[in-house]
Design a protein around this nucleic acid. Structure first.
Lengths: 182, 182
DNA sequence: GCTAATAGTTAGCCTGTCTAAATATATTCT
DNA sequence: AGAATATATTTAGACAGGCTAACTATTAGC
């Protein structure tokens, strides 16, 4: 039972079906692989985790035509305004972003990505995203339904964790803003 | 196409099938939820990320009857021996671990978890793990095969990312150990 | 028994976070 | 309009956790 297959392809062999624990192991392996991949990207760009997240957020916002303020970064990243101020200093110093006057509020600083940062990130994370889309594209409808069911279950498992009983309470999910930041 | 359903259950509605982008969104949601959950656990125990990973590693090793040395922590966590030394100081100070003389090598210090740390972690991460096992247990064989196929594809997407062409070139891959640590 | 290798500790530095206080601009009330 | 208050950012100072380099204790090789 639950034979561990380092890089097996269950679906095409036909004889051994993955068990629950195998799926959880795959989830863990994915998490590790993704973490390594992000670390490599980050490393190759000489950035830390937070700055990388900030840059991704900035690029996403920019693609939607929005010019975020520093305040928005603080909320998105869960760090203080003061820390964001220094973070944006770093992004500007390294040529990834620029401060502009915010059109609607002169108290605020609008942040825009440079062309350089866009191409830099596209070369890595964007390519990964496309590869994932291609990979998932080969699944049948039934398979996609199964995967969705699985992921929903996983999300529920880690979300309701605080209140295992009392299904009708409807609350008890760990809320981001309520976390003790230290 | 690709209707975003915040918390929909595709499989039981019957009419709308999740598309590739929906699955990737689910993956992202899961990652976020898990990150929040771990952050909450960590916060409730007053620990930082690295110390938490160290404690999980220690408990896993202990359950298998192994007494790891500080050296093993350095390798597992990817931090320096010096940092591990201080890390173990913290774990001991807060009552999660104890230093013992290593039976086979008197240069080494064996690390063992306290009973306290085991129960403390069991109350959170262990419960999550059980919930996940239960959830996955409801999937059919076909569904498990589909999920395995999906996860394998995801892993490949983020793993090969560095070298899409020229499998024999052997160059250009960012190797984990070669990362500039800053 | 020397010498080299290995495990851990300590000291000093650097980065990234925080809070508190300062500054500039917006908004609201009278 | 003018005052009071609220909001956005910056700066200063402190702290935590990572690093390297130098040091001690033990083990292994010759």
């Amino acid at each position: 039972m639950s034979s561990y297959q380092a890089s097996g392809y269950w679906y095409s062999e036909g004889d051994s079906v993955p068990e629950a624990v195998d799926l959880l192991n795959l989830m863990r392996r994915y998490r590790e692989a993704e973490r390594r991949m992000r670390a490599a990207t980050r490393g190759s760009m000489g950035m830390n985790e937070t700055d990388m997240s900030a840059l991704r957020f900035l690029l996403a916002a920019h693609r939607e035509g929005v010019t975020p303020r520093q305040r928005d970064f603080a909320e998105e990243l869960g760090i203080s305004n003061a820390s964001v101020s220094v973070l944006i200093d770093r992004l500007c110093r390294d040529g990834y972003a620029e401060r502009v006057v915010h059109p609607a509020d002169r108290r605020s600083v609008g942040i825009v990505p440079t062309d350089y940062s866009d191409t830099e990130v596209r070369g890595t994370l964007h390519r990964m995203h496309e590869q994932m889309m291609d990979a998932v594209g080969t699944l049948s409808e039934d398979e996609r339904v199964a995967v969705a069911k699985f992921l929903e279950a996983m999300i529920r498992s880690v979300e309701i964790d605080d209140e295992p009983r009392q299904p009708s309470a409807g609350k008890g999910a760990v809320r981001e803003s309520a976390l003790p930041s230290r």
